[in-house]
Amino acid sequence: MLRQVASRGLAVLRGAAASQRTCAARVFSSSSSDLHEQIRRLGPLSREYSTALNLHRNTTDNNPEVPFEFTQANLERVKEVLSHYPKNYKQSGIIPLLDLAQQQNGGWLSISSMNKIAEIVGVAPIRVYEVATFYSMFNRQKVGTYHLLVCGTTPCMLRGSRDIEAALLKHLGVDRNEVTADGKFSVGEMECMGCCVNAPMIVVADYSNGVEGFTYNYFEDLTPERVVEIVEAYRKGEKPKHGTQNPERLNCGPAGGLTTLLGEPKPPPCRDLSAC
């Protein structure tokens, strides 16, 4: 329910708000009933950066009584993480430990896992909650085994990320941040992941193989058809090739081969390099 509210908010924000805000000047000149209508259509404006609200409510599968322990192998990793920081600043390890717990826990952080980390680094639980609520990559409610994150920042948006997302949501039959009935997939939104040259792109966080097999792969140069193929490949247990999906491209190089930088670059014309 909460998820639906949140995602509806985001959809409104992405759709109506963006266009409405550009014509704020017009809004001022229109009549008062118009103004109210405009404001109403803007919808809730508080951005939901994360998959959950900023407060915890106990549920049957997420309450402090549900035990959480790091596995033996992961306890070694915890030790390793903490060895990076001075003993009196163990709390510096909160972020890597939250990440570890999230991978072990199948992609999300239960309240007990956060409490456990607070215990390990020796701070009050609220200090861990603060960190976990701050970062949108920490999921505080369940996600799919494959958590698909669509980049929604400007370059990807201009290159059709909304279509990518729509295709995903339609294919999987879910809302944003909703998990499919089989628990395999969920779709979320991401801010820019620095892959603009290959836009649009998604990230697949693969929690199917625990901490050891965890992958976080980019799929770039997507089309609505291709993204569905990728999902289907994952469903079959395959590991589709990540990186650019445009067969004509190599990494972020131009399609069809290089057009510039074909030879040794010439030195800048006006600088006497030997003088440097």
Binding site: R47, E48, Y49, N54, L55, P125, T133, F134
Partner: peptide
């Protein structure tokens, strides 16, 4: 008492205890 904290960020930032 280490119960209050700053939760969320940006426009969604709020003061709270996270748990009841």
């Amino acid at each position: 008492v280490q119960d209050l904290g700053v939760l969320g960020r940006g426009g969604a930032e709020e003061i709270g205890t996270y748990v009841e």
